[in-house]
Amino acid sequence: MDLSISDSATIDPSLDAPTLSADTLKQLNTRSTAQGTLRLAIHLLILLGSGYVWGANVGQHWTIAIPALVIYGFSLAAMFAPVHECSHRTVFANNTLNDAMGWIAGLLSLYNITFFRRYHKWHHRYTQDPDKDPEMSDPLPQTIGDYLLTMSGLPWWWGKLTTHTRVAMGQLEGYPFIPETARAEVIRSTRLQLGVYAIAILISISGGQPWFITYWLLPLFIGQPILRFILLAEHTGCSGDRNPYTNTRSTLTLLPVRLLMWNMPFHAEHHLYPSIPFYQLPIAHQQLKAHFSHVDPGYIQVNREIVAGLNSTV
């Protein structure tokens, strides 16, 4: 069964909106194992390089260690981006490679692609539908205090820990996006992931070195606020209807962010055409940008606007 996320959001049939031609879409839909491998290699090079600098300087040269930790932490948290792309099976031309790489990337970023693929498919199908879009189960910030809590990443950590635990125990009530036929696979995949974490913790403890904390837990804790800062911009402040030209935001940002986020900042383009691989999204952006309501110049500006609309109560 092909579980790739290829269908776009449910669009109001009465909507008169421009679309890419069939020939253009066919060309943009071309998957490339070479492009996927190159982006993965760049991401891993940044991850391993910054991790090495962090480890070599921690406790000695903090002016070098701290910037390296921030880069390492964000590149670790941003492994969510290949999880997202592999859930669409657009990174590589081979679906087995997409599934394997997505699982490993999820292991690094505390996501489980087997669960996420079903969750994310509903997000695309029911974008901004408060009754069906699973992303809307996480309340948006209403006050400055809510915003700061969201940016801390703490609700994300709690959500991941509780969800992984529930799924591993077979408690799938409340997850309507997981069909009966996929339940055993999702449970098995989540248990395997938690098992890998348990083994890593035991090895770290038995070796007398807190590397599980130094090289995974702490950096991911540091990187999550940056990822929250980016992901909050995707739909916040956009329309709550079925129009993908108005309910999703694309954000023009710096090359390093686009690189580590696998072009996810071109989010409106992605939601309109989920089948377009990450490396083709800049091309799609050039053809579609004039039709989107939300194309913003940078995440700082978007978050400033979000904060400006919040209740000042902490």
Results as ranks from 00 to 15, higher is better:
Leu281Met: 06
Ala34Met: 12
Thr150Ala: 09
Pro225Asp: 07
His270Tyr: 14
Met79Asn: 14
Leu107Tyr: 06
Ala284Glu: 02
His84Gly: 02
Ala78Ile: 09
Leu202Lys: 09
Ser6Lys: 14
Ala233Glu: 03
Leu40Met: 13
Phe221Leu: 15
Leu192Ile: 01
Thr37Asp: 12
Phe116Gln: 00
Gly55Glu: 04
Leu154Thr: 11
Met169Ser: 10
Lys26Gly: 15
Tyr175Ser: 04
Ala17Pro: 03
Pro282Gln: 10
Asn311Glu: 08
Gly208Ala: 13
Pro134Phe: 00
Leu259Arg: 03
Ser206Thr: 13
Asn98Lys: 09
Val70Asp: 01
Thr127Phe: 03
Ile71Thr: 07
Glu180Ser: 13
Leu232Trp: 02
Gly153Leu: 07
Glu305Tyr: 05
Met1Thr: 14
Arg258Gln: 12
Gln301Glu: 06
Gly36Tyr: 12
Gln280Asn: 14
Asp296Leu: 12
Pro139Arg: 12
Gly223Asn: 07
Gly153Phe: 01
Arg117Pro: 15
Arg228Asn: 04
Ile226Cys: 09
Leu3Arg: 13
Val302Pro: 07
Thr143Arg: 06
Ala81Phe: 11
Ile46Leu: 11
Pro155Met: 12
Ile201Asn: 10
Leu161Ala: 14
His123Trp: 07
Ile144Glu: 01
Cys238Asn: 03
His124Val: 05
Gln60Ile: 14
His271Met: 01
Asp146Thr: 02
Pro265Arg: 03
Tyr52Asn: 03
Tyr72Asn: 10
Leu259Thr: 14
Leu107Trp: 07
Thr162Leu: 12
Asn303Thr: 00
Leu227His: 10
Leu218Trp: 10
Val186Gln: 02
His88Val: 09
His61Thr: 11
Pro219Ser: 08
Ala198Glu: 06
Leu172Gly: 05
Met169Lys: 13
Pro18Val: 01
Leu97Cys: 09
Asn95Ala: 13
Trp262Cys: 00
Arg183Cys: 04
Val167Asn: 04
Ala308Thr: 01
Leu192Cys: 03
Leu149Phe: 14
Ser204Gln: 09
His124Cys: 02
Leu40Asn: 02
Phe116Pro: 05
Ala100Gly: 06
Leu202Asp: 03
Gln193Ala: 13
Arg188Lys: 14
Leu255Ala: 14
Ser8Asp: 06
Leu40Arg: 05
Ser312Gln: 13
Ser152Pro: 10
Leu254Ser: 03
Gly59Asn: 07
Ala41Val: 15
Phe229Ile: 08
Ile5His: 01
Ala93Leu: 11
Thr163Asn: 00
Leu40Ile: 11
Leu76Ser: 01
Leu259Ile: 10
His164Asn: 08
Met264Tyr: 03
Ser4Trp: 11
Asn263Lys: 06
Leu220Gly: 10
Leu148Phe: 12
Gln287Leu: 15
Leu38Glu: 08
Leu161Val: 14
Tyr245Gly: 03
Met101Asn: 04
Phe229Tyr: 07
